[in-house]
């Protein structure tokens, strides 16, 4: 397989939630949780999706897996259309894209033994049954660093970190090629986070897995990912190789995020800038560039025109009028 053929290709993904309130004269509100997201993940590549909570990154990730039905857009996995697939075709695609969840306490069925949770996917996808499935499940547990005697135990007997390992093992039972990890370590104790991250990176190298790593933690993304996409209010505002984007962000929002995140270099600590304003609501996003009310470099055009995500070379792209020669010149 050529390294350039995309594994997952997302174009123009949108997810709007419609809410009706009041009786008899109801008011309809449309919440634009995801507004035009395009993203490409190549085999074996780890892409980070970062942003503040409420920016739509988790919704976007779920819409790509069709865990929620997107409002519009196209999602292709190895060239196959994910959004129109039904029945067995969808089941086959799903097998190749798995998810690791944020909350290890709710991601396992409390009434199901670990063994059953690991063998059920194998049975559903006709991978293995009976003793063979059990042996595979035990091997799977071993791969994530848990003993085989965990098979007959229930989730409440395990710690958060152990449960997260079990969740990862369950995702691996169906031999996926892409893992969507939604804040996989943010619910864990700091001491456990590193172990789970190490496990994920080890699995990535050993199995050649591609990752979509959804996180609000830039340092984790910097350590784990090859590329990063920064989301703000339903849109990707900047994208590029992780080291470059986080060293020298172009978009004012990406810059703000970087400055606000804990700085590993002690010499530069204490320079946290103040964050101007609050995150606007996705129900009533600002006109033009959604970030303009909080942006210190905002121009007239920013309030009117939505800046498109434009490539700048070097694999980087930014959606900001400051980097648009035409707009900058007109100013």
């Amino acid at each position: 397989m050529s390294n350039d053929a995309p594994l997952l290709q997302v174009t123009g993904l949108r997810k709007h939630f419609i809410m009706r309130q009041g009786f008899p004269t109801s008011r309809t509100t449309i919440i634009r949780a995801v507004e035009d997201v395009s993203l490409t993940i190549r085999p074996g590549e780890a892409v980070g999706l970062v942003g503040e909570s409420g920016c739509g990154k988790s919704t976007a990730a779920r819409a790509m897996l069709r865990l929620i039905e997107p409002t519009a857009g196209r999602v292709r996995f190895k060239g196959q259309d994910v959004l129109t697939a039904r029945g067995d075709a969808l089941k086959t695609i799903r097998r190749k894209m798995q998810m690791v969840f944020q909350d290890p306490y709710s991601s396992l069925n409390p009434r199901q033994t670990i063994g059953s949770a690991l063998m059920e996917p194998m049975r559903v996808h006709h991978i293995a049954t009976g003793a063979q499935a059990r042996a595979r499940a035990a091997a799977q547990l071993d791969e994530v660093g848990l003993p085989a005697n965990a098979l007959d135990r229930y989730p409440h007997e395990f710690s958060g970190g152990q449960r997260q390992r079990i969740g990862i093992a369950r995702a691996l039972t169906v031999e996926p090629e892409l893992i969507v990890a939604d804040e996989p370590v943010s619910a864990l104790d700091v001491s456990v986070q590193a172990q789970v991250l190490l496990l994920l990176r080890e699995l990535r190298t050993r199995r050649g897995l591609a990752f979509l790593f959804v996180s609000h933690d830039l340092s984790v993304v910097r350590w784990f990912c090859d590329r990063v996409a920064v989301m703000y209010l339903g849109r990707i505002v900047e994208e590029g190789p992780v080291a470059e984007v986080l060293r020298a962000p172009l978009h004012p929002y990406a810059n703000m995020l970087r400055e606000a995140s804990p700085e590993p270099d002690p010499a530069r600590r204490g320079k946290l800038p103040r964050i101007i304003g609050e995150i606007p609501s996705a129900a009533a996003p600002p006109t033009g560039c959604a970030f303009h009310p909080r942006c210190m470099g905002a121009m007239q055009a920013c309030a009117r025109v939505v800046p498109p995500l434009r490539p700048l070379g070097g694999g980087r792209a930014v959606a900001c009028h400051l980097y648009d020669p035409a707009v900058a010149a007109a100013n």
């Binding site: 865990l67 799903r94 991601s107 169906v174």
Partner: peptide, 12 residues
């Protein structure tokens, strides 16, 4: 709950 979502993701 996430385990139901996991079920969907696993093709149940």
């Amino acid at each position: 709950r996430a385990f139901v979502e996991a079920g969907h993701a696993l093709g149940y």
